[in-house]
């Protein structure tokens, strides 16, 4: 699935805050400090470590980035600060690049099934509403499937969104078998000639074996009904998630064949750096980012912008929201 890039103006407004700060903070540790002598270099490396760890990139990935920088310095001691900065950015970009090339468009005549999974409260249902909205704007026919039959008022929540967007929902009874709802939804989507079916699933912790098995079963049913489906399995990750995101990705990948990550709630101060570690460990690309609770608050993921934002300072964000 391909969502159109946001209108330039809007996108710019969203990212403006972060980017403005970037110039100050990234320049500070990396450029200015690298200009100096050995002692400054040490300090700069330490500061880089702090920035990366505080962005939730994690100890192992941070170490890899710093080691590579250190190696670069050793090899070419006379490199300028800005060249070193570029080295760091390029390194992270290369980690984020995984799996992106492979994102080829599938033949558009088959029903495109998008299965949305993730831990509790990460932003799945809202992300689905946003996706449906964008598809609708693009003139595509989308149907939603309310396969969260567990959480209180989960069906109602999706229904309200669907109504706002103007798309249909297939639902079952609260407490009923989600796989059965999925089955019905696929049949309905095919009968009504839909382009997309987006399936909302109940939030579940990746450690709960029975719930993960349920997901596996849902996936199996989709594959049985539509050859090659689900074409997209999106893991919605809350941007504030720490290192637990890694085991989330690992387990959801194992049980539901995740194809990409959506980083929701990136409109706070969390940087979502664990997604870098996830890309590095499992080759899972980040596909979209959520930047608010409105229908138009879903952006296509842009690696360069993300890297800039990783290095942006937060302190001022808090004192001057929008």
């Amino acid at each position: 699935m391909k969502l159109q890039p946001q209108e330039d103006r809007k996108r710019f407004q969203r990212l403006r805050r972060g980017l403005l700060k970037t110039q100050q903070s990234l320049t500070l540790p990396l450029e200015r400090l690298f200009k100096g002598k050995r002692a400054f270099q040490e300090a700069a490396l330490e500061q880089l470590e702090e920035i990366l760890i505080e962005a939730d990139v994690g100890v192992a990935t941070t170490r890899e980035i710093i080691d590579s920088l250190q190696e670069k310095i050793n090899k070419e001691p006379s490199l300028s600060g800005s060249a070193l900065k570029e080295h760091v950015k390029d390194h992270i970009l290369s980690l984020l690049q995984v799996g992106r090339e492979a994102a080829t468009q599938l033949p558009s005549d088959a029903l495109q099934v998008v299965l949305v999974v993730g831990v509790n409260g990460s932003g799945k249902t809202t992300t689905i509403a946003k996706m449906a909205y964008q598809l609708k704007e693009e003139g595509k026919k989308a149907l939603l499937c309310a396969a969260d039959t567990f959480r209180a008022a989960a069906i109602e929540q999706l229904e309200i969104w669907a109504e706002r967007v103007g798309v249909g929902v297939v639902k079952g009874k609260s407490g009923s078998d989600p796989a059965a709802v999925v089955f019905d939804a696929i049949r309905a989507a095919i009968a009504r000639g839909m382009d997309f079916l987006i399936i909302d699933t109940a939030g579940r912790l990746h450690t709960k074996r029975n719930l993960m098995n349920e997901l596996e079963k849902i996936r199996r049913i989709i594959g049985r009904e539509v050859t090659g489906a689900p074409q997209e399995v999106l893991l919605v990750l809350d941007a504030m998630t720490g290192q637990n995101g890694i085991s989330q990705a690992e387990e959801f990948l194992k049980f539901s064949g995740v194809t990409g990550v959506v980083l929701a709630k990136l409109d706070g101060t969390a940087k979502g750096g664990v997604a870098v570690a996830i890309a590095r460990s499992f080759g899972l690309p980040i596909k979209y980012v959520g930047v608010g609770e409105g229908l138009d608050d879903l952006l296509e993921f842009s690696p360069p912008e993300f890297v800039e934002a990783l290095f942006s300072s937060n302190e001022e964000l808090i004192s001057c929201p929008d």
Binding site: A55, D238, M240, T241, T269, G273, V274
Partner: peptide, 9 residues
Amino acid sequence: MTGQDAVRS
């Protein structure tokens, strides 16, 4: 499951 940002919020 919150990461580093827990301190800020």
